[in-house]
């Protein structure tokens, strides 16, 4: 059976629009986010303190105006400056947190992302399992 080119073209266009709808659904939730990893710096570990590095990478193709780190709980101190501005996508910002000894509840920090989309991330200073 011969199907006319016009009908084939219409079928192709209909399928393509369907793919466009699928792309729209999948792309809708995408926005700038921070990829955060916690690393326990064992070289600096002592009985009285532990050191953690927070590795923060901007994802989603947009520059994030400001990333700020604040202490949420625990006996910890964020090494200055504790913030960065204009974090370009794919660029890594590393912040260091000194924690005073072992605590029953792991200390936590709040990382705030400011820009087109504002977000906050509450991060416990526990090394992610590898």
């Amino acid at each position: 059976m011969q199907i006319s080119p016009r009908l084939r073209l219409a079928a192709c266009a209909a399928f393509a629009v369907g793919m466009g709808v699928l792309a729209a659904v999948r792309v809708a939730p995408l926005s700038p986010t921070l990829e955060i990893k916690v690393r326990h710096v064992r070289a600096f570990r002592s009985e009285s303190q532990s050191v953690y590095d927070l590795s923060i990478i901007a994802r989603g193709g947009e520059t994030i105006d400001e990333v700020r780190i604040e202490l949420l709980r625990g006996a910890a101190r964020i090494a200055p400056p504790g913030f960065t501005r204009n974090l370009a996508p794919g660029v890594r910002f590393i912040a260091r947190v000194n924690v005073g000894g072992d605590t029953a509840v792991p200390p936590a920090v709040r990382i705030t992302q400011k820009g087109r989309i504002d977000r906050t991330y509450d991060i416990e200073l526990v090394e992610a399992s590898r």
Binding site: R8, A11, C12, A13, A16, V17, M19, G20, A23, L30
Partner: peptide, 22 residues
């Protein structure tokens, strides 16, 4: 998002039209 959706529609339509010889 508009660029992505637009390019998906154009690329898929063109590709299928060539494959089906429409």
């Amino acid at each position: 998002k508009f660029v992505i959706v637009g390019s998906v529609i154009v690329e898929t339509a063109l590709g299928l039209a060539l494959l089906t010889r429409a």
